[in-house]
Design a protein around this nucleic acid. Structure first.
Lengths: 191, 191, 191, 191
DNA sequence: CATGAATGAGTGTTCATTCAT
DNA sequence: GATGAATGAACACTCATTCAT
């Protein structure tokens, strides 16, 4: 079925985009790694941009899903946030290539980057909402939730990437837990 | 003197690299904005890579300088860290274009990106050192300082960029202060 | 019956070839407009060239038919010519899209263009013959009939296309009649 | 000087465009025949379209010039027209490759074709004006001058091309004279 | 020191054609 | 008979880099 071909292409594209970034990624490479002809990619996707967007959308969806699954609203916003952050950290540590895209391909002025950014915003807003919920019950410090959420998002993504560069970095599980705790500490009210 | 020419080129390069990222930046554009001929750039720099590196080095130097100036070691590591983080935040909020580079051009495998990354590491290590110092006097939670420093660096850079996208974001000063406090909260030991 | 399919394809091909010319015409477009799959076209025609040729042959046939019907040899070659020219003009004014092909796709060196040209020659020769007949009875000026026939053919085709560009051009009937008279005037002997 | 390069490119482009038509013309070919690198063409022209347009503009200019030089208004519109038509015929017979473009590349809906068409209109209008002038002194038949001018233009261009296909066609001079006379005959009032 | 014309390798995209179903 | 997914050759265009002046 054509679903197979698309998945082959997706996998190859994920590799290549992550290794070289959008601009240096060559459709030829993606095709070769996917084991299809170049034309096949253009048969299924309008172009490089659309391929990239489709891929990122898929990743964002999975990330979102993962976070939602672990961070379902309960009575304890602090615990919710911690779980959500930890889930996000785990996902990005396991998909560092995607984390690279998240930081590298989001800030420009191309249409594709705009689109990507608004997807990222959805993720950050999900964090923000947990913060808002907690704020109302006094669980979190009363400051700008948008700014705080951005900081949390940055902590997670950058740490996920940076730890790959650290000699003797803790294992991913430990890192995920540390990030979560650190992030939580940052938003708890001073006792 | 040729110092002028070089500064013209630097300014133009800063603009263009930041607006479009390294790959899409065109030497033609930089030359035009600098008001020099294309050949002139190649007279002063070996190529695009070297121009980029020289520029980033300069920015990193200024950022470092700014942080060091405000975060000079005192008896109080918490205060040191807070000041250093706030200084960094202020600098990046004022130079968002550079913040973009910091996040976008650091993660690939090109020589230039390696070089850039090791410069960034210097910055993160400076944060790490303050953390270590604080750790020894029990001022900070006893966890992996490298991971914590990475998180702090991510908080600052991403927030600096993300606030540009938030409707009704607080002014840069407020943001800088909030980041600093939030970051500090994240590393303080539970009381 | 498959005759239907072929006609659908013919109609669509006529539209698309005329709108964009042979080279820019896309088989995809033709298939879509014909409401058939791309493969179906290749089932019925060897390829783009053959489809084009078949289509042009059909048009030429209809044009020829139209001219022959109105320009049947009588005792009066002048009247014959006038009627034939007028019929041709009417046909081309009514099928301007085909007139475009007649002028655009005839002059190159591709096999298809050679073939098309020899079909066009048949049309011009028909004019030439009427001229020859008239010449023998002194009805027309005694000059090169081939050259004259070419000029007549050019008058008709170009006028058919050009009038679409003229503001406030007369209606097609008037144009056809004027072309015929003008053309006749051009070949009558000086009295 | 760079004027040389441009002329080299122009010459090569004229050849290639005429031989194959706009769509099939390959920039690589033009570059090779011009003895320059492909990039050089793009250094001097924005793209294939602009190269084509520049080239056609140049030809149109020369054609116009030629016609104006021979068809300068005098007291005798009939003679003026005859001379103008003959000059045009001579030019197109000598530059049949350009005549091909005139008929082939003028009728589509691309921007380039629109532009080309409006240049062609200028030529036809020049004929029209002579006709109008003659009309006012009763030298020509009183019918639509636009239509008549189009017919004249078609006569000339098509004949120029068609004679190349005729066995034993008269020499170009004779053809030019015959066209002119025939065309004039077409517009003279019936005596 | 500075210039800008010239270069050509590199790459995204198109589209006629094929063929297994 | 008919389909449409897959193909890959072909091509326009870009842009970092060079070098003669």
């Amino acid at each position: 079925m054509s679903r197979d071909r698309i998945l082959q292409i997706f996998d190859a594209a994920a590799e290549v985009f992550a290794e070289t970034g959008f601009d240096r990624a060559r459709i030829d490479d993606i095709a070769q790694r996917a084991g299809v002809a170049k034309g096949t990619i253009y048969y299924h996707f309008r172009g490089k941009d659309e391929l990239f967007s489709a891929l990122m959308t898929e990743f964002i969806r999975r990330l979102q899903e993962e976070c939602d699954r672990h961070g379902t609203p309960t009575d304890d916003p602090v615990e919710d946030l911690k779980r959500r952050v930890e889930a996000m950290a785990r996902f990005l540590l396991a998909n560092r290539r995607f984390a690279v895209m998240l930081l590298s391909e989001a800030w420009g002025s191309e249409r594709r980057q705009h689109a990507f950014r608004s997807q990222i915003r959805t993720i950050v807003r999900a964090i923000e909402e947990v913060l808002q919920r907690g704020l109302q019950v006094g669980a979190f410090k009363a400051w700008d939730a948008g700014v705080a959420a951005a900081g949390i998002f940055g902590s997670i993504t950058v740490t996920a990437l940076y730890t790959a560069l650290i000699d003797r970095a803790p294992d991913d599980d430990t890192v995920a837990r540390q990030i979560a705790e650190q992030v939580i500490g940052g938003v708890l009210p001073v006792r």
